[in-house]
Nucleic acid binder design. Structure first.
Lengths: 199, 199
DNA sequence: CATCGTATAGACAGACTTGTCTGTTCGGTG
DNA sequence: CACCGAACAGACAAGTCTGTCTATACGATG
């Protein structure tokens, strides 16, 4: 009925290329022509798969979201204590920082290029950040849920999560590791403080 | 020799317009033609004052930097305790959040659109963030400098500052106030903890 | 008055943008 | 073999972009 790589092959090549270019150069600075030439796809094929450039951006963000959450789950799932889980969470960024040309969070950068709050791209970014926050609550800090007042737990989650995002942005600005190290340390300190330990 | 508004008047109009448009729409999405038409300036006049669009961006960032630091100094300078100074620092963002169409930190957004680490625009952003960090150390948390080990103090500054930037980005994503509130609370908690108070 | 600096308006060049369209090639299926 | 869907190459449209250019107007100073 269908060959081994009929409808999906060029589509995947396009998303792969877009993933690289949108992330490294930004959305506005990356043209359709560059995407199609670097992914070895005809322009007509491109528009057969994606109605517009923005639709490609959304497809990319959705795929990135899936990869990101899966990798996060894998890394965090190997550990049982909240401390180790936070360390695992931050290890995601340590790895990226060591690569050449660190560009921070693709979602945040993308949101910066779409000024309208109602843009579908912005909705993707919001969804992603909400999901990460929920992940922190459910799979990283879960064991603190019952040892605190419910409002206190939510705030703990928000702070750990804000520190996380702040570190990403700072690391991008300075192109250095210390913001990530500092945020990680601070998160662990907060937890030990929460457990009533003297520091 | 010179009339009351000879060389400076159109230049200021241009920067004013650029300030609004670059901030609200982003750098790439704002064209020179829109800038000159909205500031009521001829194209030749524009290029007489700014060699290129990027030079305008830099001029804008420098001006914004100056305004920002001055306003920060004014607000923080009215208070003597670190707690109140932090509150004053966060009040900068509370005010912006209440305005229509909050767009987060102009510097961070700008950096996202310039992928090259060596870009002069990126250098402006780095300078700004360094200056803010230095301000936190010298004029917000100064009284903790001698009550802690030097490394501990630097880390405290970094954390307070990372929380601050994280809150800005989160608030931009969600278009809500809670990230700022949470970061402010967390910063104050950290300080009270640093003073050895039970929480 | 003549001149000079700064402003204006707007045509223009040349490159680049997204998106459409025509026509060809190729591989699997009836 | 004939057909059909999908991918290919690439011209093309229509508009955008930055930046340059010519020509003109105005106000202050020599």
């Amino acid at each position: 009925m269908m060959t081994t790589s009929p409808i999906s092959r060029p589509r995947e090549r396009i998303i792969e290329t877009a993933s690289r270019l949108f992330f490294r150069q930004g959305y506005c600075s990356t043209g359709i022509n560059q995407i199609i030439s670097e992914s070895g796809v005809a322009k007509a094929s491109f528009y057969a798969h994606f109605p517009s450039k923005e639709d490609l951006a959304i497809a990319w963000l959705r795929q990135r979201e899936e990869n990101w959450m899966q990798q996060l789950s894998e890394r965090v799932g190997q550990h049982l204590s909240a401390d180790k889980r936070i360390v695992a969470m931050y290890s995601m960024w340590y790895d990226q920082l060591r690569e050449e040309g660190y560009r921070g969070c693709g979602f945040i950068n993308m949101a910066g290029e779409f000024s309208s709050e109602e843009s579908p791209v912005r909705a993707c970014v919001r969804d992603h950040k909400n999901r990460v926050r929920q992940f922190v609550a459910d799979h990283v800090l879960d064991q603190y849920r019952d040892t605190m007042t419910s409002g206190g737990f939510d705030e703990l989650v928000d702070v750990v999560y804000s520190l996380f995002d702040g570190a990403i942005v700072q690391a991008q600005n300075f192109m250095q590791e210390w913001p990530v190290e500092v945020a990680l340390k601070a998160s662990l300190n907060m937890l030990s403080h929460e457990r009533g330990e003297a520091s």
